[in-house]
């Protein structure tokens, strides 16, 4: 399949806006429709657009894969910490510790980072495996 200039230009211009929309979905998840999962998938699809249209080297230069792995692991750890924090005060798992938007806001951001990094890593390793076999 021949690569055209249209794909090159559109993917470069469009992916920052998808990234911004993903951040909006994550941070305003407690007010408007959206939330951690949807915003995280939007973040991941912006990175995947770069990966598919520009190649893995361009993605790795601006978003190193080692750091994405670190974000994925940190996201899980922070979610667990925020959940277990309720036990310290004698409350249940994932009970709200901060005043109303606080806990759900933090959980949305953590879930967004985790989902975005996870889906990007899945597709990245799938992509690398296919490239190695040729």
């Amino acid at each position: 399949m021949k690569k055209t200039n249209i794909l090159d230009v559109v993917s470069r211009k469009l992916s920052p806006f998808i990234l911004l929309f993903g951040v909006y979905l994550v941070t305003f998840g407690h007010i408007s429709p959206g939330g951690g999962f949807q915003g995280g998938v939007a973040l991941a699809s912006s990175l995947l657009l770069i990966l598919l249209a520009q190649g893995p080297r361009v993605l790795a230069s601006s978003f190193p894969i080692g750091r994405i792995s670190v974000i994925e692991v940190l996201g899980y750890g922070l979610f667990l910490l925020a959940g277990l924090g309720g036990f310290l005060l004698g409350l249940g798992f994932l009970s709200p510790l901060l005043p109303p938007p606080g806990t759900i806001f933090i959980l949305n951001i953590v879930i967004g980072a985790k989902v975005g990094a996870g889906i990007t890593l899945i597709c990245w390793h799938l992509f690398q495996e296919g490239e190695e076999q040729e």
Binding site: V41, A44, S45, L48, L51, L52, I119, C123, L126, G130
Partner: peptide, 12 residues
Amino acid sequence: VGAGVSTFLYIW
């Protein structure tokens, strides 16, 4: 998911 990630997988 439908228009973003699954399209990536199918194109791949």
